[in-house]
Amino acid sequence: ETQAGIKEEIRRQEFLLNSLHRDLQGGIKDLSKEERLWEVQRILTALKRKLR
């Protein structure tokens, strides 16, 4: 995994995270989306740690 590859994956995950946040802010309670949001946040945290 290169730095560029990790950064690209971070961009993808952040896009997905923002999309999930928008969907959930629409007021629709969706447990699967909430679980996915937490999963994406965990992935992002792990990726950012790899960059250090």
Results as ranks from 00 to 15, higher is better:
residue 52 R to V: 11
residue 6 I to R: 00
residue 13 Q to T: 11
residue 45 T to V: 13
residue 10 I to E: 01
residue 45 T to S: 11
residue 12 R to A: 05
residue 48 K to S: 02
residue 37 L to C: 09
residue 43 I to G: 03
residue 30 D to E: 04
residue 40 V to G: 01
residue 18 N to A: 14
residue 28 I to K: 09
residue 19 S to M: 14
residue 1 E to Y: 07
residue 49 R to H: 11
residue 12 R to I: 08
residue 35 E to Q: 11
residue 25 Q to G: 04
residue 12 R to G: 01
residue 35 E to V: 08
residue 33 K to Q: 07
residue 22 R to A: 12
residue 37 L to P: 00
residue 3 Q to A: 12
residue 24 L to I: 07
residue 11 R to V: 06
residue 10 I to G: 01
residue 14 E to G: 01
residue 36 R to A: 13
residue 11 R to W: 05
residue 51 L to T: 01
residue 19 S to I: 13
residue 32 S to A: 14
residue 50 K to Q: 13
residue 34 E to F: 15
residue 29 K to Q: 10
residue 11 R to L: 07
residue 17 L to A: 05
residue 25 Q to K: 13
residue 10 I to C: 06
residue 7 K to D: 03
residue 44 L to C: 02
residue 8 E to R: 10
residue 40 V to N: 01
residue 24 L to K: 03
residue 35 E to S: 07
residue 28 I to R: 07
residue 10 I to V: 02
residue 45 T to F: 06
residue 24 L to G: 02
residue 44 L to E: 00
residue 11 R to S: 05
residue 24 L to T: 04
residue 23 D to T: 05
residue 31 L to F: 09
residue 42 R to C: 13
residue 10 I to Y: 01
residue 9 E to L: 12
residue 33 K to M: 11
residue 39 E to P: 00
residue 32 S to H: 10
residue 21 H to I: 15
residue 41 Q to D: 04
residue 25 Q to I: 08
residue 36 R to N: 03
residue 44 L to S: 00
residue 2 T to N: 07
residue 34 E to G: 04
residue 2 T to S: 09
residue 13 Q to W: 15
residue 48 K to T: 03
residue 24 L to W: 03
residue 37 L to T: 02
residue 25 Q to Y: 05
residue 39 E to L: 04
residue 26 G to V: 07
residue 39 E to F: 04
residue 26 G to T: 13
residue 34 E to R: 12
residue 12 R to L: 13
residue 16 L to V: 05
residue 18 N to Q: 13
residue 46 A to P: 00
residue 17 L to R: 06
residue 37 L to A: 05
residue 41 Q to S: 07
residue 50 K to E: 06
residue 42 R to Y: 05
residue 43 I to A: 06
residue 9 E to M: 10
residue 17 L to C: 13
residue 1 E to R: 08
residue 28 I to L: 09
residue 4 A to P: 04
residue 13 Q to C: 15
residue 48 K to P: 00
residue 36 R to W: 06
residue 13 Q to A: 13
residue 2 T to W: 13
residue 20 L to P: 00
residue 14 E to L: 11
residue 5 G to N: 10
residue 3 Q to R: 10
residue 46 A to W: 09
residue 40 V to I: 13
residue 5 G to D: 12
residue 49 R to I: 13
residue 33 K to W: 12
residue 24 L to N: 03
residue 5 G to T: 12
residue 6 I to C: 12
residue 3 Q to F: 07
residue 26 G to Y: 09
residue 7 K to Y: 11
residue 45 T to H: 12
residue 46 A to H: 07
residue 25 Q to T: 09
residue 39 E to D: 05
residue 2 T to I: 09
residue 1 E to W: 09
residue 18 N to H: 13
residue 10 I to A: 01
residue 3 Q to P: 05
residue 21 H to D: 04
residue 29 K to Y: 13
residue 26 G to H: 09
residue 30 D to L: 02
residue 37 L to N: 01
residue 8 E to K: 08
residue 51 L to A: 02
residue 30 D to F: 02
residue 51 L to V: 02
residue 29 K to F: 14
residue 34 E to Q: 14
residue 52 R to L: 14
residue 51 L to C: 03
residue 29 K to P: 09
residue 46 A to C: 14
residue 27 G to W: 06
residue 32 S to N: 10
residue 13 Q to K: 04
residue 20 L to W: 01
residue 2 T to P: 05
residue 25 Q to L: 09
residue 35 E to Y: 11
residue 10 I to M: 02
residue 10 I to Q: 01
residue 46 A to V: 05
residue 37 L to S: 09
residue 6 I to Y: 02
residue 20 L to G: 00
residue 3 Q to E: 11
residue 47 L to H: 00
residue 41 Q to G: 03
residue 25 Q to D: 08
residue 50 K to H: 03
residue 20 L to F: 02
residue 32 S to I: 12
residue 8 E to Q: 08
residue 44 L to M: 01
residue 52 R to T: 10
residue 21 H to N: 09
residue 13 Q to D: 03
residue 25 Q to P: 03
residue 8 E to M: 07
residue 22 R to N: 10
residue 6 I to T: 01
residue 49 R to C: 13
residue 28 I to N: 10
residue 24 L to Y: 06
residue 52 R to I: 13
residue 47 L to C: 01
residue 40 V to R: 00
residue 14 E to A: 03
residue 19 S to N: 07
residue 50 K to Y: 05
residue 42 R to P: 00
residue 43 I to C: 06
residue 4 A to F: 07
residue 13 Q to Y: 15
residue 23 D to S: 08
residue 5 G to M: 14
residue 50 K to T: 04
residue 43 I to W: 03
residue 41 Q to W: 14
residue 47 L to P: 00
residue 29 K to D: 08
residue 45 T to Y: 07
residue 4 A to W: 10
residue 36 R to I: 07
residue 13 Q to V: 15
residue 37 L to D: 01
residue 44 L to R: 00
residue 35 E to F: 08
residue 25 Q to S: 06
residue 26 G to I: 07
residue 12 R to D: 04
residue 42 R to A: 10
residue 26 G to E: 07
residue 10 I to H: 01
residue 6 I to L: 12
residue 38 W to Y: 10
residue 2 T to C: 15
residue 46 A to Y: 07
residue 22 R to D: 07
residue 51 L to S: 01
residue 15 F to R: 14
residue 22 R to T: 07
residue 41 Q to N: 06
residue 43 I to L: 12
residue 15 F to N: 15
residue 40 V to M: 03
residue 12 R to F: 07
residue 35 E to G: 04
residue 19 S to E: 14
residue 38 W to M: 12
residue 25 Q to N: 06
residue 11 R to F: 04
residue 52 R to G: 08
residue 36 R to G: 03
residue 27 G to L: 07
residue 31 L to T: 14
residue 32 S to G: 10
residue 43 I to H: 06
residue 20 L to M: 03
residue 44 L to V: 05
residue 30 D to T: 03
residue 14 E to N: 03
residue 24 L to E: 02
residue 26 G to R: 09
residue 49 R to F: 05
residue 29 K to G: 08
residue 36 R to F: 07
residue 20 L to V: 01
residue 49 R to D: 14
residue 12 R to C: 14
residue 17 L to G: 02
residue 19 S to R: 07
residue 19 S to A: 13
residue 15 F to A: 15
residue 47 L to I: 01
residue 47 L to W: 00
residue 30 D to I: 03
residue 11 R to N: 03
